[in-house]
Structures are given as C-alpha cells and as structure tokens.
Design a protein around this nucleic acid. Structure first.
Lengths: 288, 288
DNA sequence: CTTGCGCTGTCAAATTCGTTACACTGCTCG
DNA sequence: CGAGCAGTGTAACGAATTTGACAGCGCAAG
C-alpha cells in the first residue's frame, strides 16, 4: 500500500528526488515530460521512452512504495480520473441541514449523474435532427408513451402544440391503435418514449407505423428499446433512481429541450403563434 | 489502422450505436460513464466494470475497426493525451463536441441551477411531512395540476397508485370540479401543482376543498401561488428555463422523490402491493 | 592499483493478459 | 414446435508483460 503522506505520485517523486539514482532520475524526467500520460503504457514502453531498462522502472515503482508496476499504474490512472471527473462530485450541499442520506439528496445526486451521463451518451446531432423534424410544419407529429412515460409524452404534446399545429398524442388505450394508424401519413413523425419493461405492443405499433412510411424517433433508456431498429434517430438516456422505479427526469429534460430547439428552429412562424396564444388566454381569463 | 471517418472513439461509438448489441451497449455506457479513463485498464478490468465477458470487449474493439484491444487502448490514450494538452478540456463538457451555447448545454446548466437552488430553498421537514401524509393509508389522496402541470400531476398519480390505494387524479376538465368536491372527505389530502400564470379557478377549488376539511399540499414556483395561504405545507421550486416556457424538471423531481419517500415510509404495506403488481403485470403480458 | 559496494542491464521464469474456439441461450422464422 | 441464427459466456491456448536472479560495469576508498 502506498504511503499516505504525499497524495500524488508526482508529489512522492519530488519528495524522494534526492535519493534517486541516475536511471530513476531519467525516468522521472521522462514521466514529467508529459505527466501522467507517459506512465500509462506498458512497462516496456515506459522504459524505452526513458531509455532505461524494464527492471529499473519496476525498481522505481517499488521505491515509491507500490507493490509492483501495475499498482503504480493504477494509481496514475486514478489520479488522472479524479482530475478529469466532473466537478459534480464536489459535494455541494444540497438540501440545507438534511443529511446526505436524506432521500432528497440521494435523488438529487442520482438526477445529476443521470443528466450528465445522458449528455455524454447522447449524440447531439441526432438531437438536432429530431428538432428539425419536429420543426417541419409539413409533417404531422405523433407522440406515444407507455404506462409510465405516457405523462411525459403528454407533456411534450402540450408544449409542441403551443409551438406548432399538427401535433397529436397517441391514445394510451391500445385498442384505439389500429384505427389511429389510419391517420398516419407518409411524411409523419412518430416520437416514442419507451423505457425498460419495453412494451411488445408498442414495438408492433412502431413497425406498423413505419410501414405506413412514417419516420420513427425514439427516446429510450441506456439499454435501448428494440424500437431502435426501426427508428431514424434514437436518444439513449440514463434513468436510474434510488427507488423502486426509474426516474423520468432526463426524458422530461429531453422533451423540454426538444421543444425549445423546435421553437428556435422555426422562430419566425412560432413567434406569431405564441403571441396569438397569449391573446386568447388573456381573453379567456378576462372573459370569465 | 482505424478508419479516418470519425476522429474519436466516442464519435465512432455514437455513429455505430444503432448496430450495437446488448453487451456492447453496456460497454458503451460504462465507457462513457468516465471517458476515456474507463477504457484504460486491462481488458479484464474493462469487462468487469461493464459486467460483460472479456471477449465481448474484444469484439467491440474489432467492430470499431481496431486490430485488437491494445490498438483500441492506444487510440484512447492518444485521444486523452491530445485532450490534456488542449486547454479546451478545462471546460467541463456536457454534450460531447457540442458548443457551450448548444441548447442541450444551456438547458443542462439551467436544470442544475434550478435543482440545487430549489433544494437550498426547500424545507426538508415540510417534504418529510408531506411524505408522511401521502403514506397515511387512512387518507385518500387527490392530485391536481393545471394545463401544463397536469402531466406532472398524472405522473405522480401513476406512481402513487402503484404504492398505495386511494389515489385519484383531479380531472383536468374544470366543469367536473363541483361534483368532484362531493367526494372529498375530512381527512383527505389534496396535492396541487400550481406554477406561474396561477389559475384563479384552481385557487377557488382549493378553497372549497379546504372548507370540506381536506389538507392542502402545494408544489409551486419560487413566486409562490396564492394557494399557499390555504396549504399546510408548500414547496417552492425554481423553474427557470432558457425557453419560452418554464421548466417542470424540478416539479417532476419532487414528485419522484415524494413517491420514493412515501414508499420508504410504509414499506411493510407497500412491499406486498408492489409484488402483487409485478405478478399481475407478468400475467397480463403472458396472457396475451 | 585493487577491492568492494552499489547501480544497471540481460536473461529467463512466472504470471497475467489478449485471443481464439466452442458450446450454450434466447429469439425469429418457417 | 423445431430448426437456424445471432449473441454471449466459458474455457483453453498463445503471447506479452511483469518480475526475480544474476552478472557486468563504474566509482570510491583503502
């Protein structure tokens, strides 16, 4: 086990720099030349880079207190990893005065990790392409969700309807689906929310819709719904939660961001619509 | 030599994400969880981290166009090295390769600020008290939302119904409200989602419900709905978004956290219910 | 000049790693 | 319902790495 005094390998090396032999100093110089990347190859690579023999590298590692070269290397990786890690891990206190184990704080941590994890996983060009589809007024939009995700789908529809005409929510009742398919045209866009416990019926529905010529867009979890095979664009999201069920915060996030992107993409047409909606709402309010 | 089309391994993975198998997706998720460090251990480590077998890692590497795992790893190291020398990498990146001004990144920043701001604003004892009310099976729960927040209310109802009996969604159609009031009893709990553009009708409804003896719980924004005067507990949340409309991510967050807290508070009773639900779902699936 | 000590590189053993071959599982299609 | 297939894991092989042992070299002290 490495000593606890100096936290990093670099620090430990500097502390010991007085007691290093010639070969070890060559190694140190080579390592600092681009730290810590230079230490991440095989022991052979490191030795050749510093122009010393392989055992010299091993001897240095042991001198620094590691059990062997792999242990040394793992420490380097851990340091680098910590350095790269998102500052999210900076334990910024969440709910004031509540313990870290409080459900609010645990959920907050999970939500943050899901969000940043999803964004790393996500292809932003797919996102942009979806927004462009949604902004295309020649296309009719249909949004479908399952038992749980139905609320998210409804949320997306509510907002999209404020931004553009021709937006429909696919009914939750599955027996309506066959007749609903009748209204799906060649240029239509179908947005599916499908997260695990994937619904086999929804897959069938997607297949039928695709045969009608509709474009399929999928918002799913990291394990990816089978509908992905039919979709022109898929967004895999992280949805883990410290709970009996999954978290739909990130799907909602995506829905909101898609609406905003859609509005941006067709601002000229949307502007007037939003203004008209405002007027109508005010009238409705005053009228009562 | 790897193909030149996509410059980074991450990019290549995203391009191929549609053609990945289940094990390969697990690897992708694990790799992105801390990219690219997660790929720098031995092939055994990488496999264990993603919970797949060693050959699956190798297969993915070959699928991406590398001659073998070492070639794949060397590419990752090269990327990391380049990234470390560029000061750009200091920017904690959200969506990979997307500019900071991309709507996804702006929304992500807003979501984080809303969440941490809400938690600092929130009284966690009020939260716990609400959870205790929701967990009390002697009380019937009613959840109401407005035009926008209706979806969030529906989401809360869907989940609460899985955890306990006696949970109702107040219908969105306002003309049903008078008759709905008939069913509200003395010990009932009414959860309102009311964020700005507060609905005057909802305030009236809340007042009537309170006169029936129901306990009012309010989830609102930082400007606080007038219903707060009637409520036994209020949770003010931050909901700003870089968009024409407000963000309901934090309200959804609260809904999910409340469900989890409710489940925790009455686990003994809930456990059996969840198990029964599982059984019924499976039967329903197999039965069809 | 010689002796002894410490450092370093060469070599080979042991272990771990990367890779290939094969068998099993679950799904799709006839 | 059975055959075929894609996908996955287990197990064995070969390759590379890591590590220990040993011998040569240089330096310093006697």
């Amino acid at each position: 086990m490495p000593p606890q005094r100096a936290s990093t390998v670099a620090e430990r090396l500097r502390l010991m720099s007085g007691e290093l032999t010639a070969a070890e100093r060559k190694l140190m110089v080579a390592l600092f030349a681009n730290y810590p990347m230079a230490g991440l190859g095989s022991i052979t690579d490191v030795a050749r880079e510093a122009d010393v023999s392989t055992p010299s590298v091993l001897r240095l590692a042991k001198k620094l207190g590691f059990s062997g070269f792999p242990a040394f290397q793992e420490e380097l990786r851990a340091e680098l990893s910590a350095q790269l890690q998102n500052p999210i891990s900076k334990h910024e206190r969440w709910a004031a005065d509540a313990p870290d184990t409080h459900i609010l704080n645990r959920f907050a941590t999970a939500a943050m990790e899901n969000l940043s994890g999803s964004l790393k996983l996500m292809d932003h060009r797919a996102f942009d392409a979806i927004a462009a589809l949604l902004a295309d007024r020649r296309r009719t939009i249909h949004v479908a969700g399952g038992r749980i995700t139905g609320s998210i789908a409804a949320y997306l529809v509510t907002h999209l309807q404020m931004a553009r005409p021709g937006v429909n929510l696919v009914p939750a009742t599955q027996s309506f689906w066959p007749q609903y398919l009748l209204d799906i045209g060649k240029q239509d866009v179908l947005v599916f929310f499908d997260i695990r416990r994937y619904d086999a019926r929804m897959l069938e529905f997607a297949a039928s819709a695709q045969e009608c010529g509709a474009k399929i867009v999928l918002i799913t979890d990291q394990w990816i719904s089978p509908i992905a095979r039919l979709a022109v664009h898929s967004l895999p999201l992280r949805i883990e939660a410290p709970s009996s069920w999954d978290s739909n915060i990130v799907p909602l996030f995506v829905a909101e961001a898609l609406v905003a992107a859609t509005v941006n993409a067709s601002w000229r047409e949307t502007e007037a619509r939003i203004a008209a909606l405002e007027t109508l709402s005010d009238q409705g309010r005053r009228g009562k």
